[in-house]
Write a protein that binds this DNA or RNA. Sequence first.
DNA 1: AACGAAACCTGCGCGC
DNA 2: TGCGCGCAGGTTTCGT
Length: 275
Amino acid sequence: MPELPEVETVRQTLKKIVLGKKIKNVIINYQRIIQNSDSDTFIKSLIGRTIIDINRLGKYMYFCFENKTYLISHLRMEGKYFIKDSSLEIDKHEHIIFQFEDGSDLRYHDVRKFGTMELKNEDNLLTTHPLSDLGVEANRLDGKYLFMKMNNKNQPLKTFLLDQSNVAGIGNIYADEICFKARLHPLLNVKKITLEECEKIAEASNEIINKAILAGGSTIRSYTSSLNVTGLFQLQLLVHTKKGEACCMCNNTIIKCVVGGRGTYLCPNCQKLEK
DNA sequence: AACGAAACCTGCGCGC
DNA sequence: TGCGCGCAGGTTTCGT
């Protein structure tokens, strides 16, 4: 469940529950989720730590501990967190389990095992990959920034928007919605995009992402939701998942195509390649 | 620099 | 019921 609004929702919900909790033990059932550290080091670094904050940049969430160490977590396609009593049986998809001193667990659940976790310290948190490579947050864009980033690039608009070093936090759902709101074709080459159009893209992104955060993100195609929180922004989606339906602006039929290998929804009448 | 395809994984829905 | 295929909200890597 992972674009900016969904990760932000997880962050806010999780923060209310785990702030101040102290880690008693960590269980790793699938090692590959841990990046740049062996299981032993990972576990030893976390035992005794108290969570004092949870922050987010783009789709990366990070836990802050009292000794100025950090744990970056990326949910990728299907990562979720659950809080459970430590005595409850461990689900086969619960790969990393943080056991707190109060008897509760924070369990990382990931059917496809694509998610990642990485330990950082105060010195390298923001200055090394991945956080050092992120562009501006998808709800804090301005046209001049986008226009500058597009300079000398030769690629489709959607590909540009999905590149996290250009804009942090946009994924496949919101990329489609932003292109539609800006009335631009996802395949439109960024070298043809004007400053004025960049202003429209920035405005569309800021508005859509902020509305989605307020709605708790989107829940599509997922039966269980992280922390039992189900977003409602899918009710406000205008093109994504709407193949065959009527466009809300012009009544033409929404089509589905492929851009950069990703399923892409658009209105061929509102979003024309040639103007 | 840019593209596609493959890789990392599992599960679901579909047509036969 | 079973099987194979395509698809999935992400990112990295590799070959052209």
